[in-house]
């Protein structure tokens, strides 16, 4: 009995011998957005401009060629971020996303990072949207679906 207890104890003890967390940074402020038809099929859309809120700042990476996927950054100093998507000089869509943030120390060797959670669509004039995953992590491939 004693031998069995000793064996189990030292097995568990040896499994917990590493006192530092792995330096695995999963934090990102990029919200993964996929574009779809109302039936859920990926849809190629060409945007003339993808703008940050009401500013003139924009994302050239996603402009002027057809795409069915975007990764747009959320503002780390706020709990909501607005994007504008122009499909022509007169037509634009607006998307305001809400979220919460929290700080987390990963390990002393890799530091602290900001994590994003509770993603919601606060306001939009897209036909329909659906939050797939409310937590922003590097391992998550889709946070939000937009339906045209």
């Amino acid at each position: 009995m004693l031998k069995r207890i000793s064996f189990i104890f030292f097995l568990l003890l040896s499994s917990s011998c590493f006192d530092q967390n792995d330096c695995l940074i999963t934090s990102t402020n990029l919200v993964q957005i996929s574009l779809n038809t109302v039936t859920g099929i990926p849809m190629l859309v060409t945007f003339l401009r993808v703008l940050k809120g009401d500013s003139t700042g924009h994302f050239p990476l996603y402009e002027k060629y057809p795409l069915d996927f975007l990764a747009l950054p959320l503002n780390p100093d706020s709990t909501q971020t607005t994007f504008r998507f122009m499909t022509s000089d007169t037509v634009y869509y607006r998307l305001t996303l809400g979220y919460s943030t929290y700080s987390r120390v990963i390990a002393t060797d890799c530091g602290a990072f900001l994590y994003y959670d509770n993603l919601t669509v606060l306001k939009t004039n897209f036909d329909s949207t659906l939050v797939i995953s409310p937590q922003l992590l590097t391992s998550v491939t889709s946070n939000l679906k937009i339906f045209f």
Partner: peptide, 24 residues
């Protein structure tokens, strides 16, 4: 207590890094 700063290269302009300072 925690205080830290990190650079975000994607928010802000694409040329300038966005420095974030957080305390808690």
């Amino acid at each position: 207590s925690l205080s830290y700063t990190y650079a975000d290269s994607v928010y802000g302009s694409s040329q300038n890094q966005y420095l974030i300072t957080k305390t808690g």
